Simulated assay, not measured.
Amino acid sequence: MNREIQQVFNAQPSMDGAGVAIHRVAGFEKAAMDPILMIDELRSEHREDFAAGFPPHPHRGMQTLTYMKHGGIIHEDSLGNRGEIQSGGAQYMSAGKGIIHSEMPTQDTAGLHGFQLWFNLPAAQKMQAPRYRDLPVTELAHLAGRGFNLTAVSGDWHVAGTSNLEGPLSELAPQAALADLNLEPTVELTFAVQLEESVMVYIYNGDVDLGGNSYGERQMLLFGAGDTVSLKGGIHGAGVLLLRGRPIGERVVHYGPFVMNTEAEIEEAIRDYQSGRFAA
């Protein structure tokens, strides 16, 4: 059964880091987005919109995945990790019990277009050791077909009429998946999903046509029940992020960069950070 759209959200303009202009879709209280907590899109041709970047700041209890379409980002953290990704690459970090990191644009970046996604961690994994991984564009999985291009970062992608594609990032929990799809105008693509999964599509370029309705840039589409999703490129074609994940189904308590299950755990995270007990 093909899934139908149940909800549509518009990304809202906001600021983060040291004054970086972003558009954000927040899903901390949206059960239909579980296990995805948030999507930020960073997109500007003007360096002053993002030059100050994201100076050192803490996290606990969640994972981040940064995916760059254009431009470069440098990651550094309190575990001594340092990584740089350029156009088409991705960076993964599980904050676990606590980490401090920064994300700054490379000096040669004049324009920037990318995404940072927050994924929840189950309670049993929130206090595990932090992890980090770089994924340059050459490590990602790519599939080109008639009228479409698909790049898989995480998860298995079963596209009708083609061979399956598996993203290299297996660390995302629980069984979360991310792919980048570009569709030419009027081209339709169907991919398989698991019945228990949350399924979302974020449109970052052009428009898609679903059931005679058009949806455009910076809209997040949440789908209902079913085992397939079909997308059709609109008159301008489309660039979209495909997102899936098995819901965790646990209470989410969020305060700034900390995502836990109870208020007491948030208070503990703040105390641990202020007293210097985060990973170092």
Rank of each mutant, 00 (worst) to 15 (best):
L165R: 12
R218Y: 09
L79I: 04
G96H: 04
Y67H: 15
L135P: 03
S154W: 12
R3T: 02
A110K: 11
I235S: 07
L150A: 14
D156A: 13
H70D: 12
Q63C: 03
A279Q: 11
P168V: 14
L222T: 06
H75V: 03
I248C: 07
A110Q: 12
H101A: 08
I74G: 03
T190P: 08
V240E: 11
H70Y: 02
G249M: 11
F148M: 08
M260R: 12
A152N: 10
T64Q: 06
P55S: 15
T162H: 07
K69H: 01
V259N: 01
L242S: 10
G211T: 10
Y215K: 01
E188F: 01
L121K: 09
L140P: 00
R43M: 01
T228E: 09
G216I: 00
P174Y: 06
A141L: 07
L178D: 01
L222Y: 13
L79F: 09
E29H: 15
M260T: 07
M62D: 00
L243M: 12
M62N: 02
V187L: 13
T109L: 03
E139L: 14
Q6E: 13
E84Q: 11
N120W: 00
A160G: 02
H101G: 06
F9S: 09
M38R: 10
G216T: 04
L150T: 12
S94I: 00
I248Q: 12
A129E: 14
Q91N: 08
D49I: 14
Y202F: 13
A124R: 15
V159S: 09
R43V: 02
A177G: 00
E41N: 15
V240H: 01
R244F: 02
Y255W: 15
G80M: 08
G234V: 08
T162K: 07
T190D: 10
Y92T: 02
I36H: 04
E184H: 09
I99A: 03
A160K: 09
G211L: 06
N2F: 10
R82G: 05
V240M: 07
G212Q: 05
Q116D: 05
F28W: 00
G83R: 14
L178I: 14
R131L: 14
L112S: 08
V25G: 13
S170K: 09
A31L: 08
A144S: 13
V253S: 04
A95N: 10
G27R: 00
A152E: 04
A152L: 11
R251M: 06
A51G: 04
S230N: 04
A18T: 01
E268H: 02
M15Y: 11
L79K: 11
A152M: 04
T66Y: 10
E29C: 05
N2V: 12
M33N: 11
H70M: 10
L178K: 05
A11K: 10
Y67E: 12
A280Q: 10
H23F: 03
